[in-house]
Design a protein around this nucleic acid. Structure first.
Lengths: 150, 150
DNA sequence: CCACTATAGATGTATATACATACATATGAG
DNA sequence: CTCATATGTATGTATATACATCTATAGTGG
């Protein structure tokens, strides 16, 4: 179990932007993971269900672009969700493509998990304050876009 | 290989702060990984060398607190660095503890890799602009701290 | 139609990461 | 001092993640 960090080293800025970002991602992932625990969903799995719910049927490649996940990584990340019947796929007109969509069981699962996710969101937003929360979201989108132009 | 995202879906904000953060971390990690490739170091490995250089000799637990990495995760993440002779460890007064430090070979390795890391830093800073770069670093530190209080 | 080349995804392999649990050592109540 | 409990790390197991490479399919110039 991760120890509370408060009483020892209070994480200061790291000189490396990548290290800073990864560290924050670990910290926040742990918070969301904790809240989502009762649902049995990993944060990543919840994100995939939510993304498919938002996009509707979408190819593996486009889903990867939206989430900045290598499309070959998705081959494996999506497999357990399919195994549980929450998503399904079919071949597209272009038979190389795989089109994914949420099943109705998947939609129900997403709805079941949503309150736990909302609790995580509220918990972080409250600890951060509304202003920081907003600027976090904005700067993250800009960073994500910037890497594409860099 | 990750595809350029520009010409298809331009990553918009995700409703989930955790998903946003993880996505940005993936994007930025790929940029740093690309620049660090010639050195043979993974971004995480570079971060560990840099952190040990900054702290001097430190226990595994404290190192984990600083980087928000579970200390048992470090058991495995540090192993390859020790195998290559860049770090070494000894037992502390408290014999349960393991104290880690950079070797002189490790310091040389860090110096060798530094220019590549700096290239990555410059590349991201340039794409982001100085203001966004600064606010990124600040908000990330606050988020990391907030999870400890949340 | 045919040979090239390009693209979508699958598979092999490796690192990063956490949690549950196990083990060794420390520490405090008596 | 001695036992009960707490703490630091190691190990078993699982997910997340990427890249290199492979295969199947698509698109293109002749």
């Amino acid at each position: 179990m991760m120890e509370k960090r408060t009483d020892a080293i209070y994480p200061g800025a790291l000189p490396c932007a990548c290290a800073n970002l990864r560290r924050a991602a670990r910290a926040v992932t742990q918070l969301y993971d904790q809240e989502l625990r009762p649902t049995g969903l990993e944060p990543t799995q919840f994100t995939l269900l939510m993304a498919l719910n938002a996009t509707g049927e979408v190819t593996q490649g486009k889903l990867g672009q939206r989430l900045v996940i290598d499309s070959t990584t998705l081959t494996r990340s999506l497999a357990p969700l399919r195994a549980r019947g929450w998503i399904s796929s079919r071949r597209g007109q272009d038979r190389r493509e795989r089109l994914w969509r949420l099943t109705s069981a998947g939609r129900r699962e997403l709805e079941r998990a949503q309150p736990y996710w909302e609790r995580a969101q509220r918990r972080l937003r409250k600890a951060l304050g509304q202003d920081e929360w907003s600027s976090l979201q904005e700067v993250l989108v800009r960073v994500t876009r910037a890497t594409d132009e860099a």
